[in-house]
C-alpha cells in the first residue's frame, strides 16, 4: 500500500478487522448493483459486500472496521441508544442534526470526538443535514464519518460513511460519493404535501 507506514494503530486495525470479518463471515454477500427498499434506492459501489439486517443495510469493501456505508430508515418514534431524545416531524434540519450529535457525544466509548462540519445538505432531493466528525475508537484508532440525515414524514433516513481516518477514508470516499449521488428517496405523495403545508420548506443547495 503506497504511502502507508505500518505502525501500531495500523496493526491494530488489521487485527480487529480480521476478527470482525471472521465473526461476520456468514451474513455478508456480494452487494447487488442496485439496492432497493420501498422508500429508497441506491447504486452499490462496485465490488463491495452487503450485510442486510432488519434495521439497516451495510456495505463494505475491506471489512466494516476499515470502511462501511450504512443506510438506515427508522421510525421517528424510535429512541436513541445513548440519549432519551426523540426526533420530531417538525424539526428543522439542524435540530435533527443536534439530536444525532448529542447521541454521539453521549457514547461512552468514543474519545476525542471532533466536529468537522455540520451543514445543510440535500439528501435524495430533500432538505436534510450533513455532519462530518472524527473520533478515536476504544482501540485507539482514529475514525472519520460523514453522516447524512433527513426527516421524512414518519421516518428518519440516514446514510453514513465511516472509515479508518488513515488511508481508508480517502481511498473509498469517491465510491461513497457516487453511491450518495445515486440515492433516491420515494415518499408517499399525500404525506409529503401534508408536511410541506405544515412546515416551511427549505431550498438549500447540497454543500457536498
Amino acid at each position: 500500500m503506497p504511502g502507508l507506514t505500518i505502525n501500531k494503530p495500523v496493526i491494530a486495525v488489521w487485527v480487529v478487522a480480521t476478527l470482525m470479518l471472521t465473526a461476520c463471515a456468514g451474513p455478508w454477500n456480494k452487494a447487488p448493483d442496485h439496492l432497493h427498499e420501498p422508500r429508497w434506492s441506491i447504486t452499490s459501489p462496485e465490488g463491495w459486500m452487503q450485510l442486510s439486517t432488519q434495521e439497516s443495510e451495510m456495505l463494505s469493501k475491506d471489512g466494516p472496521y476499515l470502511e462501511y456505508i450504512l443506510i438506515q430508515s427508522r421510525s421517528l418514534a424510535q429512541g436513541f441508544r445513548f440519549t432519551n431524545q426523540k426526533l420530531e416531524p417538525d424539526m428543522l434540519p439542524h435540530e435533527a442534526a443536534q439530536v444525532i450529535a448529542d447521541n454521539m457525544r453521549s457514547d461512552p466509548l468514543i474519545r476525542q470526538l471532533q466536529w468537522l462540519a455540520s451543514e445543510p445538505a440535500m439528501v435524495g432531493g430533500h432538505a436534510g443535514f450533513r455532519l462530518i466528525y472524527s473520533y478515536q475508537d476504544p482501540y485507539g484508532v482514529k475514525i472519520k464519518t460523514i453522516y447524512y440525515g433527513v426527516i421524512l414524514p414518519d421516518q428518519f433516513f440516514n446514510l453514513r460513511y465511516t472509515a479508518a481516518h488513515r488511508y481508508y477514508f480517502d481511498k473509498e470516499l469517491p465510491a461513497f460519493n457516487q453511491a450518495f449521488d445515486s440515492l433516491r428517496l420515494g415518499i408517499d405523495l399525500k404525506e409529503n404535501i401534508r408536511r410541506i403545508l405544515k412546515t416551511p420548506r427549505l431550498d438549500i443547495r447540497s454543500s457536498k
Binding site: H94, S118, P120, P200, L202, I204, S207
Partner: peptide
C-alpha cells in the same frame, strides 16, 4: 458550527 444552517433559513426568510 450551525452558521450554514442559519444562513439557509435566513435566505428563506428573505425570499
Amino acid at each position: 458550527i450551525a452558521r450554514e444552517f442559519i444562513k439557509g433559513y435566513l435566505s428563506q426568510c428573505r425570499d
